[in-house]
Design a protein around this nucleic acid. Structure first.
Lengths: 214, 214
DNA sequence: TAATATAGCGCACAGATGTTAGCTAAAATG
DNA sequence: CATTTTAGCTAACATCTGTGCGCTATATTA
């Protein structure tokens, strides 16, 4: 029974939680103080080094955690089904915003550091978001085939949707409830526009090709 | 002849330039040191106070400058005309990315601080972007009327376009040229999708209304 | 020309920061 | 049970931070 490793994991998690907490009180990773994180985590400043080599190192761990949360969202989105009340887009958006609210602090860190100070972190985040994009691409391709809709370039659609969902949701989690609902409504509209636009473009292209052949 | 006021304005500008320079070497405003800015501007640390009360105060000035750059972009977009080589969207996107490249450092600061540490700055930036959005809304309404296209809700379209242009351009200005061109291509596609999507939705709604009335 | 205002400077202080070195209790290991 | 490993601590350092105080040169003003 490794009481020791257990405890180590626990304080490690304490450090990560502390960092997220402090960073959500208006700080980027670069403006973070090792001492403050340590204090918040309830350990001595020097003990931090028993777990991470540097703050940036710890930041990478946070990115990993946030990324896991995003992957979970997609997992849930896959299970989503349209019903009589709401169509697919509405439901997926709703599910997503719920997740964002739930993991708000963590994802906010991701969003902040995506344009933040550390080149290494930016790279890491970009890489993670690329993975997410691939998953969304698959999802869109699968769904559009399933419903026999014509999306010629699901990757472009996925790209657009990821961008817009990510930034809208991140900025929405600071808002009061009413404004959040409004953001959600606009987000649904936006995504639908992307979707329909891509489809219409695909069809137009299709018709153009037919005309050229005839 | 106010040699004095002139000089003051000059060092003030030096400070702002210094701040932008330092911030583009991987720092948020919060991670900025007054002393370093002063050194970069070529003045003593304490002289900073002759121009700004605090770093945040200076940040607000930077936001103002960046905002002016954005307004200039829209002014140029208004003058843009489609030609035989490129359609309107392509040209506007191109013009915009040029501007972003030109004012890259300044706009990057805006983008970073939009999710940055200072609540006051975030507010200010949000407000400026709102003004930009209004201008885009007008532009779209005007253009769609001029070309007799059917956009029921230009504000929603403007909203979507601003978001996607802003974040795409900001992330693009770090990229090598080839990738920038790719980003530009995707951006054009994305905006076109939004546009066509909104139009298609408007027409569908129109048809639905007609059906309901008949 | 005499008086005033001010942009700039150096000095100094108190506090915060990252990091090293060395100690200790207690868990893990043999 | 004896030994080793290690997560945690305190003390201490050199460095950097914002900022207050008082001086000076010089442009402006009366």
């Amino acid at each position: 029974m490794s009481t020791r490793a257990e405890q180590k994991l626990k304080t490690r998690q304490n450090i990560l939680n502390a960092a997220v907490k402090v960073m959500n009180e208006d700080r980027g990773l670069a403006a973070l103080s090792l001492r403050e994180v340590a204090k918040e985590a309830g350990i001595a400043p020097t003990s931090f080094y028993r777990h991470f080599e540097t703050l940036e190192d710890m930041g990478l761990e946070l990115v990993k955690a946030a990324s896991a949360a995003l992957h979970q969202i997609i997992k849930d989105a896959r299970l989503t089904q349209a019903d009589s009340q709401q169509d697919m887009v509405q439901k997926v958006v709703h599910v997503t915003m719920d997740h964002f609210r739930e993991n708000g602090p963590l994802i906010r860190v991701l969003a902040r550091e995506a344009m933040g100070s550390s080149r290494i972190l930016r790279r890491a985040i970009k890489k993670e978001l690329q993975l997410i994009k691939n998953e969304i691409t698959d999802l869109i391709a699968y769904e559009s085939k399933k419903h026999q809709r014509n999306i010629t370039d699901p990757e472009l659609v996925a790209d657009a949707i990821l961008d817009v969902m990510f930034y809208t949701c991140v900025s929405a989690i600071n808002m009061p409830y009413a404004l959040q609902k409004d953001a959600e409504r606009r987000l649904v509209h936006h995504i639908r526009a992307i979707y329909i636009g891509a489809e219409t473009m695909a069809n137009t292209l299709h018709i153009e090709r037919q005309l050229m052949l005839s």
